[in-house]
Design a binder for these strands. Sequence first.
RNA 1: GGGCUCGUAGCUCAGCUGGUUAGAGCGCGUCCCUGAUAAGGACGAGGUCGGCUGUUCGAAUCAGCCCGGGCCCA
Length: 1117
Amino acid sequence: MPVFEPVDTSLKFPEAEAKIAALWKDQDVFQQSLKLREGRPTWVFYEGPPTANGRPHPGHVLTRVVKDLFPRYKTMRGFRVPRKAGWDTHGLPVEIEVEKELGLSGKGDIEKYGVIPFVRKCMESVFKYTADWENLTEKIGFWIDLKDAYVTYHQSYVESVWWSLKKLFEKDLLYKGHKVLPCCPRCQTALSSHEVGLGYKDVEDPSVFVTFRAEDWEASKTSFLAWTTTPWTLPSNAGLAVKADTEYAHVKVGDETLIMAAALVEPVMGKLKHEVVKSEPGSALVGRRYLPLFDWWKGAPGEREKAWKVCAAEFVTLDTGAGIVHIAPAYGADDYALGQREGLPVIHLVGPDGRLKPDCGAFAGAYFKDADKDLIKDLRDRGLLLKRENYKHPYPHCWRCDAALILYAREGWFIRTTREIGRVIENNKKIQWLPEHIRDGRFGNFLETNIDWALSRERYWGTPLPIWVSEDGAHMEAVESLKDLAGKPGVEGLDAFEKAQAADPGLNTHLRVHKPWIDAVTYLAPDGKQRMKRTPEVIDCWYDSGAMPFAQWGYPHAQGSLDQFTQAFPADFISEAIDQTRGWFYSLLAESTLLFDSAPPPHPFKTCVVLGHVCDEKGEKMSKSKGNYIDPFGILAEEGADALRWFFYSSNHPWTSSRFSRGNVREAQKEFLLKLRNVYSFFVIYANIDGFDPSGGRGPDFQRYRRGGRPLPERGQLDRWILSELHQTTSGVRQRLDDYDIYGSAQQLNAFCESLSNWYLQRSRERFWRPWRGEDRLHDDDKDKLDAYWTLFECLVNFAKLIAPFVPFTADELWQNLVRRPLGNAGAPVPKPSDSGATVVNLDKFARVPESVHLADYPTADPQAVDCALGEEMALVREIVSLGRNVRAAQKLKVRLPLAKVVLVLADAEKTDIVRGHEEVLREALNVKQVEFARMAEQYVSYKVQPNFKLIGAKYRDLVPKIKQALKDANASHLKGKFDSDGCCVLRVDQKDVLLNQEEVEITIQAKEGYAAAGGRGAVVVLDTHLTPELEAEGFARELVNRIQNARKDLDLKYEQRINLAVKGSPRMEEVARAFGEYIRRETLATELRVGEMPEGWRTFDVDAEKEIGTLGLLAE
RNA sequence: GGGCUCGUAGCUCAGCUGGUUAGAGCGCGUCCCUGAUAAGGACGAGGUCGGCUGUUCGAAUCAGCCCGGGCCCA
């Protein structure tokens, strides 16, 4: 049995992932990872509850993979990271979904159908797609505790919410007020913004300029000119708004004076004869009073004094109208908000049915749309209309009945967030937002323009508002639980639910805190006469989700909830998409700030990673109706979870919207996961062939060696280099993850994978192929070979740990095969970096082997293993090789053909010795016999001396362009000579001597034309293209080896299969085969090489190399 | 209309507090390598860094205005 399970490179990723998923399930690895960290500090994660009444889409995948990454990472860093799932179950979307399903339309239908069955349907529908969600969660490897999820309709959750609302009520932060909502006068119901969006239509409305006479009209004949497209709101006018920082003109028309924005005088007046007599800023108008157009509204005592005055408002624009806006707080959101701020009364002269109220004289009972015409006529008759036009604009209509909507101030319950918004803003400032601009940008602005939270909904399926009101409305009380209710005087109706349940045992017990059963509970009012009844509304479901920090534990009612809550408050980390700024992010922050005065900010979350939208290939929002929707389950089934995860981590920062497509996922997979799997597979193939066993316990071969390979200083450059890269990557990734920089850490991982595959392995292959020299493995070559194994082994094992939070399946697959399989027996050691740095893998320090990589510690970087100088050297060497290949390509000289020498000219001649230290790697990579260095190499190269702008700029400022020119004009070779000998040079610039030292310039070299050469920043590489018969023969031999290898592949021979080999062909071919016989046999694992004959029964292959023709014969031994 | 955000190669995106030859991957073209083989590598073409104006010795980077896309709100 091989030490390592051979890697099936044709294996589909999803199959391998399914195996790992099964392993996690069998061993309950997630729970183990929690148990393992028992007693350690807790790192708190809050799950933003999704609604499960729709199928998950790709955006949910992004959210979930980001939510999964950091808890996994923090767990490996030694924290205990409980992850309680949650479900958002209330709200209008659920009701609408059920309405659709039942073919109902509007509240009337629901009442007819029956609230009880409707609510039951809502509850059932909530988990309609639960199976899909759980499937997705499991498939993408999102570790979260689904069994212990919080559910917003559960009794304990609802009672927690009640408790919090009672607290707000007691602090006078919960009150009854008005809110302007788009309503359908026919259906008599408010519409959600989503519904409004469905019904926009272009209509033509009258647009009128109306004059509001100033209070002193009799004396001054002055009035304010305002514009509106809704004449029916004019009787309900309560104020006028101007822009404070804009000029307003007094315009004389006839014997009257009109006040209007100076900038709009010409467009409004047109041909009308007029004269501007004076102008003043808008701020000067503020506070002036005027006479109402229709004096129908009487108002309560003292109310009339508050109405009909000029206010300043930000929203006044000079695009249309007269620069003065008519304000009807009952029929406009801006109007209402301004009215609240300025203390204007809410004048309601239109009923919810759209008809003018009885107060309206002759107009009483008119439908608002029909009233427009007559109202205008009335104004004109009374000389209050300047002019009338028509205005085409989009206007919302009811998507059900097509009636024009009216914006209507309705009664409702509000949270007085505006009172505490300063504290909310302070709290927000302490939160770490990613990207940062959310804090003061989108979210900060939102907070700055905060209005009170409209909490109540006149619907059925939601947390009931726990306010009980006396019949005359004089007493109000908030209730925090059923128990609280039960203690009320003269309570009745608590048994309503029990009775219902007795009649229908299928009734879910959690429904006892819901409508309509809870509405049956009444009790005696403090006056001892009236009954206290619950106000009928339910609450906004966003309040539910914002309550999760405490409500998920049933705090404060549930036993032990105080501890649970305090331990998990505030959260270290949350993450959701950008659309949650006004949703969950706000509800969390607002509730926490209002409820927990004494908690030090920030709370209830410290860090928030805000995610962008997942778009289609063209960058457009995905939607099922557009047909550009990509089903994540399809990609999970084909490409696999890790590919999907890696795509989201590595394609861009998570807050930029990503273009999601199968092609893009495959690309990400190819670049990283496939490359990694190839390296892993390579290791397994050769480790198995050579019997490399990290446990050291299998057979005598490794007993004599110190397990873990030679100490670092004794290993070769390549090994030390890749281990240095590994440890640098380790610290880089740790640091970036600590900073929540997903994209940055993914790039680091990508880069290491590239280095490992394209350079370390590429250059080390020979060490893996090479046979052992001696049984005792004491030969230097054998020690070096063992080092190669240990080095690659350590890279793979550590890398598996590094990538574990990102691609948990792949990571564990590597771990299971590379670590668990050979080392997993009881008592066997687990690789752990030493702290001495003497050896990087020190098996003496091994402890128990975790069953899964996710139970391991995240790797620490050993600073002693990091060798920055070596890293720079290797970068230069890689550049040289790249340049050399460039030359070969240009000269059409295959790498197989050996060349006599390469001449290197380094930009920095001091690096000669360093590069010479890598001579062997260079010789092999470029396939040359000799590496030479040319110091004064003017025949090949020319120099270019440029200023180091950063230094020169700071020092010489505006002299810089002249210095640049002077350096350009000077003889570059001469300058270089100067710098080489003196370390500085003197330039004549602007009649002054400027002394430049070595650091202040940058000397680069370029290859001269006409040579087989190529140049980069660090070096020029010149190839000796002169071919000798010996070189050509060797090249030919390599061609032969290549053909033989291809033949081996055709025969599908095992890597270690030995063969007998025959070569018969042209005289030159046979001659080369003889001359390089040993080399050919070694490279192709041929025990025997016959030249010039072709034994019977051997498999033959025609060859054609360098225009020589022949036949190869192979026979497996 | 307001706020936020983005605009860099055919495509997807990097590019920190300004430093003069703007990078990567994919795609395309030309090759190479192959005992990792339904992989891998090199090279090349391709860019007015959305536009304009300014600040500066120097701008993809900073400021202002404009144009265009996206999101949120009205």
